[in-house]
Design a protein around this nucleic acid. Structure first.
Length: 664
DNA sequence: AAAAAAG
């Protein structure tokens, strides 16, 4: 890279910045935004960098010098660690005419252009791998047909599938289709609200009578443990219908206290059913009450949009049988529906903080009637970045309301929230809190930097679903591309993508068309996908909690799973400490591509080495939930630096473009 | 320290 002016060096006015959390302590969200808009990053004067072989660089700094601590793992050592023979040769096709002057180009008209004698060329060359393949015409391994002497096959005898011949489904023709709006009972899910268009009378202002759903949920065993916890029969029945008859430990522990109206701190292992732990009591509490326009009575805050969707989808059928309305409030989806349903009055919000604050400031929502406030992934919601938003929201709720905090780990600054917002909380932890589930095995592999790519590819090329965690958004994109280049179908998931892409990618991962997900920590928490057999940490986690959360994507709900962490030699020590704090028992071992251990982990499959392309998303007909149509598509998510002070950095781009010096 | 969370 050549030296260039740093785009952000205009922030060199040396203003001192207060630490962010202090700065925001007494500011409203809006004030904070306003402040951010005009705020410049603190700036240390760039010290002259002197190198023996160069003049002092006073203004700006040389990129390569400015990153002395750039760790090897994210340095693009070489774009490809295959040996030069293995690596595909990308050949530049020769351009016939160089130069800009248009008049020195021979002017061919279409018909007097030199005829490339295509037939004489013995081989077609593909740009992609530089190999030469016989032209189709020369191939002897398959019959060559010209259009008109192709065997005619039995095209005419092939059974024709005709819509009208199908007997396996009712046949409607335009004119004998059932009446559209009146009788849809046969299409109607019995646990889904049937939204009826208001009649003219109703629109004129006569009161709308809400139909009580008629639901037959079947019977429930007498010894159903949910019933014993005090859960309403309708909920118990609905759960039983999905085969949920026995509560998990965290649910057994927290539900009675939560039902009693107490503030609860719940810590349960990953995949242990925390969602129902707070969901059921919340629904019980909200059931039967009256919600005013724009004044929801319950709110569940979650750190990512995907998690919000997941919680929403998990609670929706349950909320329905309790006659509780709920709404997903998250960024990336259109405002009008959210505003409209708030206006009509919705009992329970499942929200990401930013959008909810936004709606409150717009006056579309008022949290003054919130009886139950839930923080899912509480410790994450309490870290530096989220804390201001979370306190802003909690401040808007009445202090006497009930608060439920749930997480797999409870530390960080959760204490602050607990002290400020919870009264006489009961804490319930299942198991020892730290250790991961016993069906999970852990491997720490110390590897050479040059082997990282090929090892990742080997690990990911296994059968079944795999999540590869990386540290940065850029890294996620890069590794996903590299995996595809090596023949492993992988897609990147991170917050820098549009919500449409995020949904598409997650859907494809769920439906199996893309078995490998390369994700930042956006997917570290809460996201549940069945049968993720392996978690690969291509970059080790930043701290032990992250290890636990990432690892928790596998071995869920009693299933088996393995976690493999790739370590560069210098990351070994830190990882050992992390494993200790996380209660993970694993010894770092050296590993190279092709090692027995690796083969064993992957079941012996190997990447093909031939590049693959991402599948097109499946067309989503009648999609309900599942995400495809849920968020507005194509709208970019916020840039990741929204709200952060200082000049805007490129999205996930190289670090330290913010004018700060690397020298400490 | 990065990522996430509003457009």
């Amino acid at each position: 890279m050549t030296q260039h002016h740093q785009p952000d060096s205009e922030s060199a006015d040396g203003r001192i910045k207060k630490p962010r959390h202090k700065k925001y302590q007494n500011q409203s969200y809006g004030e904070r935004l306003a402040a951010d808009a005009t705020y410049d990053a603190p700036r240390e004067d760039p010290k002259p960098v002197v190198r023996e072989d160069s003049k002092p660089v006073v203004k700006g700094y040389r990129a390569e010098q400015a990153r002395p601590d750039r760790s090897r793992d994210d340095r693009p050592v070489r774009s490809d660690d295959r040996s030069s023979d293995e690596r595909p040769r990308y050949e530049r096709t020769e351009r016939p005419y160089a130069g800009n002057a248009r008049d020195d180009r021979p002017a061919f008209r279409r018909d007097d252009r030199p005829q490339q004698n295509r037939g004489d060329r013995p081989y077609a060359r593909t740009e992609r791998d530089g190999k030469q393949y016989p032209r189709a015409a020369e191939r002897t391994d398959r019959p060559q047909y010209r259009r008109d002497d192709r065997p005619q096959g039995d095209r005419t005898e092939r059974p024709r599938f005709n819509r009208d011949d199908r007997t396996d489904r009712p046949q409607y023709r335009q004119d004998d289709r059932g009446p559209r709006s009146d009788d849809r009972s046969s299409y109607r899910r019995d646990d889904k609200p049937f939204v009826r268009r208001p009649s003219q009378e109703e629109r004129r202002g006569e009161p709308i009578r809400r139909e009580e759903p008629v639901i037959d949920l079947g019977t429930v065993a007498d010894d159903n443990q949910f019933a014993a916890l005090g859960i309403a029969p309708r909920l118990v029945q609905r759960l039983a219908r999905d085969g949920i008859t026995a509560p998990f430990p965290i649910q057994t522990a927290t539900i009675p206290d939560a039902l009693a109206g107490r503030d609860v701190l719940g810590r349960g292992q990953t995949g242990s059913g925390k969602t129902l732990g707070f969901g059921l009591p919340t629904l019980m509490r909200l059931s039967g009450g009256h919600t005013e326009s724009r004044r929801p009575r319950g709110m569940i805050l979650v750190p990512t949009r995907e998690l919000a969707m997941q919680v929403h989808d998990a609670l929706e059928p349950l909320a329905h049988v309790m006659n509780v309305s709920l709404k997903l409030i998250a960024g990336g989806l259109p405002y009008p529906k959210q505003i409209e349903s708030l206006r009509r009055g919705v009992d329970l919000l499942i929200a990401t903080p930013g959008r909810l604050i936004d709606l409150c400031e717009q006056g579309a929502a008022d949290l003054g009637a919130v009886e139950v406030a839930v923080l899912d992934e509480a410790d994450h919601m309490c870290d530096m970045g989220f804390m201001p938003a979370v306190t802003t929201l909690l401040d808007m709720t009445p202090p006497e309301g009930q608060r439920l905090l749930f997480s797999a780990t409870l530390d960080n600054d959760v204490d602050k929230i607990v002290k400020t917002y919870l009264k006489d909380p009961v804490q319930h932890s299942t198991e020892s809190g730290q250790a991961t589930v016993s069906t999970m095995e852990h491997h720490l592999l110390v590897i050479e930097p040059a082997h990282k790519q090929s090892l990742t590819a080997e690990l990911a090329s296994r059968d079944g679903r795999t999540i590869v965690f990386v540290r940065t958004k850029l890294g996620a994109d890069r590794i996903a591309t590299q995996l595809r280049d090596r023949g492993v179908m992988a897609a990147a998931l991170h917050g820098g993508l549009t919500q449409g892409m995020r949904n598409k990618t997650l859907d494809q991962f769920k439906d199996g068309s893309v078995p490998v997900l390369v994700a930042t920590d956006v997917a570290a928490r809460g996201i549940h996908v069945d049968d993720v057999g392996l978690v690969v940490q291509a970059d080790p986690p930043a701290e032990h909690k992250d290890y636990l959360h990432r690892a928790g994507r596998t071995a869920r709900a009693g299933g088996k799973g393995a976690v493999v962490t790739l370590l560069l030699p210098h990351q070994r020590r830190g990882m050992i400490r992390m494993a200790e704090s996380a209660g993970v028992k694993a010894e770092p071992v050296r590993a190279r591509p092709g090692d027995e251990l690796v083969t064993e982990l992957t079941g012996g499959t190997k990447p093909s080495g031939y590049p693959v392309k991402l599948p097109a998303p499946k067309p989503q007909r009648f999609s309900k939930g599942g995400g495809g149509k849920r968020f507005g598509s194509g709208r970019p998510g916020r840039g990741d630096n929204r709200g952060s002070s200082g000049p805007r950095r490129s999205n996930g781009g190289p670090r330290r473009t913010d004018g700060k010096s690397y020298q400490h």
